[in-house]
Design a protein around this nucleic acid. Sequence first.
DNA 1: ATGGTTGTATAACAA
Length: 262
Amino acid sequence: MRIATWNVNSVRSRIDRVMGVLERHDLDVLLLQETKCRDDQFPMLDLAAKGYELAHHGLNQWNGVAIISRVGIEDVAVGFPSMPGFGEPIAPEARAIGATCGGVRVWSLYIPNGREIDHPHYHYKLDWLSRLRDDATGWLADDADAQILLAGDWNIAPTDDDVWDVAFFEGRTHVTAPERAAFQAIVDAGFSDVVRPFTPGPGVYTYWDYTQLRFPKKQGMRIDFALASPALASRVTDAMIDREERKGKGASDHAPVVVTLD
DNA sequence: ATGGTTGTATAACAA
C-alpha cells in the first residue's frame, strides 16, 4: 500500500499533474491540501475513470483538503472534533479531513500558516496544533494499536536543517520555538516522522517559494510531513520526496511526499 | 527594491 501527501496549490489548475502523480507512484491514497475549490468544483471525472473515490472539504478559494483513494473511503470526518475556526466572527475552515482507507485512518491536514509572529493567525495556528495534539492523544488512548497517519502541510520547519538559511528566517514564522514545540508535542504523543529516516538532511526540502528562483537555487523548506502512529510506523518500508514534480511549468510550490507500507 | 510568483471570490488577498 502506498500513500502520498501533497499541497497541490489548486487542484483545478493541476489535475493533469495529480493524475500523473497517482500513476507514477502507483498510489492507493493521495492526501491533498490547498485544493482551492468548493466541493462542487472538484474535477472528479478522470479520477473516477481510474477507479478512485473522493472525500473533499472545501469552502472557498483559500484552503480545501481532500482524500483520493482506490482502497475505499469510510467514516469520513470533516475536521477533527476540537478543531478551531478563525476570524471575527469565528468561521469554520477547510483544513482537515479524515477517513479510513484500506484499514488505515488517514488525515489530510493543512496547518494554518501563521502569517506573522504574534499575528492573530499565529496564535490560531498554535491553538489549532494544540487541539490536534489533544484529539490525537485520545485516539491512541482509545486504541494503542490504531493505524493512524497525520499527513499534510504543517507549515513548520522542525529543525534548523529543514530551512535553507536559518538567518533568513529570524523573526519569521515556521521556525519559532512555540511552533516547533507544538510539532514536537504531536511527536511526543506517539506520532513519528516516517519519511525522515529515508530522506536524511540537511538540504532535503518539500517546499520552494515561487519567487526569487528558490527552486533552482535549492533554497527550500521541509514543512510537509507524514506522522504515523506506532502500529502504522512499523509497517513503513520506504519513503521519498518527489522533487521532480516541482520542476517545469505549472508545478505546485510543494513536492509530494510518498510513503510505502508493507 | 518590504522587491519576486502563483492561485483565484482578480484584492487595501493569502501564501
